[in-house]
Amino acid sequence: MGLDFSIVPDYLDIILLGVAWTIGITVASALLSFVGGIFFAVIALYSPWIIRQPFRLIEWVFMGTPLLLQLFLIYFGLVQIGIDLPAFVAGIIGLGLHFAVYNSELIQTAILAVDKGQMEAARTLGLSRGEALRKVVVPQAVNAVIPPIGNNMIALLKDSALVSVIGVSELTLSAQRVIGKTYRPFEFYLVAAAFYYVINLCMEWVQRKIERRIAVSR
């Protein structure tokens, strides 16, 4: 059986719907991973020991096990404790939490990397601890953290393909559905790969723009 790309346009609508889902899931998981990342970082840096420990365990488990396994746990685990979420919600929670842990590491490093003198100077000038954090330390940390978080978000796009395994009709599963009808795996997985690649290039382009803007603002 050779290759035949002439049937691709007939199924493009299904594939494009999958693209839309992939973008939606990526954006939603990215937002969750920012919020979660900040939350985890604040707990790791500023909370008492006893609260920190369970979160350290969570981080350790999320970083030490494969995302696919975590998705199975969240999807089937929630069902077991009586929470029947649609697959795409479970997928977003799984991707979001997984990357929140990685973002948290980056945010912690960035906050710790801001010179101690900055906080001391701000406090000396009469700012409260909260104000000093919000107005002096965090804005500087944000600039340092955006490029590596951008890399995480590009990784998130690619890992969003994994939610196809728990039955979310994003790009990968859409390609699989089309293949089920046409028996043309090479062509349609290649088409799916091409769409991922284009989205990936767009994200890299945006990332470069943002990095340039940060470089200028410094």
Partner: peptide, 22 residues
């Protein structure tokens, strides 16, 4: 660029399911 720019899962599928076609 290509292998880091597309999901590893898709690369596996192309090789395993699409491979026989080529």
């Amino acid at each position: 660029s290509v292998f880091r720019g597309t999901p590893a899962l898709i690369q596996l599928f192309i090789l395993y399911f699409g491979g026989p076609q080529i």
